[in-house]
Amino acid sequence: MTPIPVFDGHNDTLLRIWQRRDADGGAKAFLEGGVGGHIDLPKARAGAMMGGLFAIFVPSRQLGVDYMKMMREASYDVPCPEPPPVSEAMAATLGMAATLFRIERASAGAVGVCRSVAEIRAAKDRGALACVLHIEGAEAIGPDLDALHALHAAGLRSLGPVWSRPNVFGHGAPFRFPASPDTGPGLTEAGKALVRECDALRIAVDLSHLNEAGFWDVAKTSRAPLIATHSNVHAITPHARNLTDAQLDAIAERDGLVGLNLATCFLREDGRMRSDTDLDAVAHHLDRLIARLGEDRVGFGSDFDGAIVPAGIGDVAGMPRLLAFLSERGYDQAILEKIAWRNWLSALERVWGG
């Protein structure tokens, strides 16, 4: 059977490649593979990955804790680090964007940076990996929003105002389990202005790291479909980063989309970050997402290269195993294609326009 293409709503591969500080910007490491990580071009081809949102995430200077280790405990509340200063965040953001452009240039057409759904479809048709620039945490953008316009011109098409740490635009949902996503104030006035400008530029606003108040502030401020690129179901896994049924219903009403996160701490009922997580946990969340959102508003948002995923998937090359598992559970070809890629392209088209 021909593998089903996969469009991934979220990965942290650019950060991993950029941090290598290779002389060629990481192009060889990505294009030839063999250097670890969840996504490179050979793994993407093995997993039938057609493309995705490639995140730019600027790490804090010092986390101060091993948050992956903390999230293996029965309960946890990971301290939020301070955000990096704007100048530092901009330098890192440009570095990661340049990493993707260098990969594209060195790929001889095998990788394409896409700015529209038409370009994603064209890349798919010619067998190229379609990469969309996404920002996770807008620390590189000042309240004047000048950088937003420059980054949009460079290809930015999706943006999360915050990561889990607070910044000038709002407050994120912490890595806390068990916990409600209602953890404090939401968007600042600068954050609301950022959302309005994203609407004007047709940049998708990602809800995944916002706390509950911030989620509702976006819902009130934006007129676009509501998108959570990598989030799961709070009713199953009561993590502060997961979405309540009320939030899921709002996304359905606004004809948006949720990308199912493969990070095990958001999948497991005990909230732990452990690779020995059954694929049943993925199916459990997927079943619930489809029940609340319908089969046209759910996709994948793997969190590859930013989290521990079930060993049964391993990396992007394991996505056909996940789809085969879901097929055995009764998901037919049409629904699997929607979840794997069609729904993402439809949702982006609703945000970006034709």
Rank of each mutant, 00 (worst) to 15 (best):
G312I: 07
R321I: 10
F304V: 12
A324R: 13
R268K: 05
K338R: 15
A324G: 13
P310C: 08
S302V: 07
I339F: 10
L267M: 10
T244I: 14
F304R: 04
N232R: 06
H234R: 12
L243Y: 04
A340Y: 01
A317I: 03
I335S: 14
R297G: 02
D303E: 13
G314K: 00
H284Q: 15
A252S: 14
I290K: 10
N242Y: 06
G294D: 07
D303S: 11
P238I: 08
G299T: 04
A317T: 04
H285V: 05
R274K: 15
M319Y: 14
K338Y: 06
A263D: 02
T277V: 07
R321C: 09
D332S: 12
G294C: 11
V309W: 02
D280W: 12
V309Q: 00
L262D: 02
L286A: 09
L267I: 04
R321G: 01
L348Q: 11
L326N: 06
G301P: 00
H234M: 13
V351I: 08
I251L: 08
L243N: 02
C265E: 12
S302N: 13
L345E: 07
S231K: 10
E295N: 11
I251G: 03
H239T: 04
P320W: 05
D278Q: 10
D270K: 02
V233Q: 01
Q247S: 08
F266W: 10
